[in-house]
Simulated scan of single mutants.
Amino acid sequence: MQNEILLGGGFYFEDLAVGARFGSRGRTITETDLVNFVNLSWLNEELFTNLHDREHMAIPGRLVPGALVYACAEGLVTPSMQGTGLAFLNAELDVSAPTFVGDTIHVECEVIEHRATSKPGRGLVRTRNKVVNQDGKLLMTYTPLRMMRMRVATENKE
């Protein structure tokens, strides 16, 4: 595809700076998502699997595991690093409120760390990612540190 523009590419390291903000589209978490995730992950907690015997449970409603919310959030931000993300290194994660089947989530991201690595052609970017539902309620915050590709592999002097 020489001399053509490839759609769907992610940010390069140089495209980001501390304070930069971007957001994702929304995604509704469905009953099918919950059932498939519980079966895939073996999170067979009654909180997620028992529809009828709920009176002894602390949270009423069709609750979604935080791990599923995180996985969906990462899926929503993946286009921002398509072809330019090199590695996921670590993250801290805090769940602020429950998420339920039928909630539509989106992710609001802010760059909070940005630095070159010792190897040419790559840098480290940490974002603060806020997962928010359709009512504007904060559900989760996590801070992934990712290694990102630079446009030009130059000798990094830091």
Score class of each variant (00 low, 15 high):
M1E: 03
E4L: 11
L6D: 00
L7G: 08
L7D: 08
G9V: 08
Y12T: 00
F13H: 06
L16P: 04
A17C: 10
A17P: 01
A17M: 07
V18R: 03
S24N: 08
R25W: 02
R25P: 00
G26I: 04
I29N: 07
D33I: 01
N39Q: 14
N39H: 08
L40F: 14
S41W: 05
S41Q: 07
W42Y: 14
E45I: 00
F48D: 03
R54S: 00
E55I: 01
I59K: 03
L63K: 02
G66K: 11
L68W: 12
V69D: 00
V69A: 07
A71L: 05
E74D: 04
T78A: 15
S80H: 12
L89T: 10
L93I: 15
L93K: 10
D94K: 15
V95E: 08
S96V: 01
F100L: 13
I105E: 10
I105P: 06
H106K: 10
H106W: 14
V107A: 07
V107R: 03
E108K: 06
C109Q: 14
C109Y: 04
E110P: 10
E110F: 07
E113V: 03
R115I: 00
A116T: 13
S118F: 01
P120A: 13
R122W: 02
V125E: 07
T127C: 10
R128L: 09
R128P: 02
R128C: 05
K130Q: 14
N133E: 10
G136P: 03
L138K: 09
T141S: 12
P144S: 09
L145N: 09
R146V: 02
R146K: 11
M147E: 10
M148P: 00
R151H: 03
N156M: 13
K157G: 01
K157Y: 01
E158Y: 09
